[in-house]
Design a protein around this nucleic acid. Sequence first.
DNA 1: ATCATGCTTCGGTTACTACCGAACTATGAA
DNA 2: TTCATAGTTCGGTAGTAACCGAAGCATGAT
Lengths: 225, 225
Amino acid sequence: MKEGPNLAAVAALLGDPARANMLTALMDGRALTATELAHEAGVTLQTTSGHLARLEAARLLRVEKQGRHRYFRLSGEDVAEVLEGLMGLAARTGHLRAKPGPKDPALRQARICYDHLAGDMGVWAFDRLRAKGIVAGHDRHVHVTQEGRAFFARLDIDVEALAHERRPLCRVCLDWSERRYHIAGAIGSQFLRKLFEKGWARREKDSRIVHFTPNGRQDFSKLLA
Amino acid sequence: MKEGPNLAAVAALLGDPARANMLTALMDGRALTATELAHEAGVTLQTTSGHLARLEAARLLRVEKQGRHRYFRLSGEDVAEVLEGLMGLAARTGHLRAKPGPKDPALRQARICYDHLAGDMGVWAFDRLRAKGIVAGHDRHVHVTQEGRAFFARLDIDVEALAHERRPLCRVCLDWSERRYHIAGAIGSQFLRKLFEKGWARREKDSRIVHFTPNGRQDFSKLLA
DNA sequence: ATCATGCTTCGGTTACTACCGAACTATGAA
DNA sequence: TTCATAGTTCGGTAGTAACCGAAGCATGAT
């Protein structure tokens, strides 16, 4: 009783449908304006403004001013992880959406989680990266191996440069649909970007869903074979 | 927008202070009666009854009837994990309790998480178990090694028998205070039980806090040296 | 300067829900 | 049977907060 951090305060913030929709919209790692988020949540701009102020005060969101726009994004990967965790619990406890939506299977297949690949494809890719010895390690402390650096270099990803950024190079992130891990961090971000650059996959407009082209899927499989 | 499981519905359940207090009280894995939970949450029995009905309907709690008592417990380890995750976010985002409470340091040191050891000591123990080759593996898929079976056998823990239970033998669980993993599952549960049996540690009454005796701490260190 | 756009603040309404008192059901003990 | 304990259901109250319209800034374009 009354021990530890104030769980209820944070959960209550996530518990409002409008705020939850805004946060979900930000799960793909993009930064969105207040107007865009208002549209996502289906409420007016002034209501949105109030919600965003509260989320920012709680440090769940980070804001960047650019001209007369204010861009909001999740304050960190850990926020995205908790959101995914809650989705997992919602799915497991049968608390699905009233109207499940036809997009759900596609969402389970492949989606953006913050800025990296999640879903069935994301988990599969992570498994392959490990099986091929490109990454190794325990728990959250996964690292890119020497062979891994060569592998990423062939994709024009400079691991050395990424390693010097403030952001963790290589992390794992729990998947709500698979309940297993996929790769995150700077490497996860760059890896996904390459998929788009190569034209192997594209993102559905205004959605977290990622679509692979038939050829892209094949080339991706070959890359990680 | 409106993709994936209904995150807000679950979060709203966790967002009420009374319900959050009840769930927190159940984090130590015990099963408590409605009356006990009413006391924990600081509300009357009839209010509690309503909350518990909702939590059970959402499959966050499981109930067992025994005579005229109804014992409530968390429906699974995953619920405890999400609660710990939310606590981590609350701590990280500065959303601490209004009155931090003098017990917080003790809680960070060693506490019960569902039915296994968490906090600084829990994370340390898990590190040692891995360093000694008692457990090995990646991610959530950790396993007890051959040497590990011998190690646990010396503690009168029959890994073979536990492995045949429905419950996962060896899992990991994320720690809100350390933001690192500790050991859970049937092994984690038995391991903690041994600490109590040996008198190395005892649990504080009506709390998740675990106190190690001076000798117990020494013997525990020696065991995992 | 004037206008348009993006966002915030203020005020009032509405809807929700946590809460408790009181009455009721169910199980067990004497 | 009678009483006590554990818990649920019902009804009414009260506090909260989500919501929008309107007005008010602030920045950028013309």
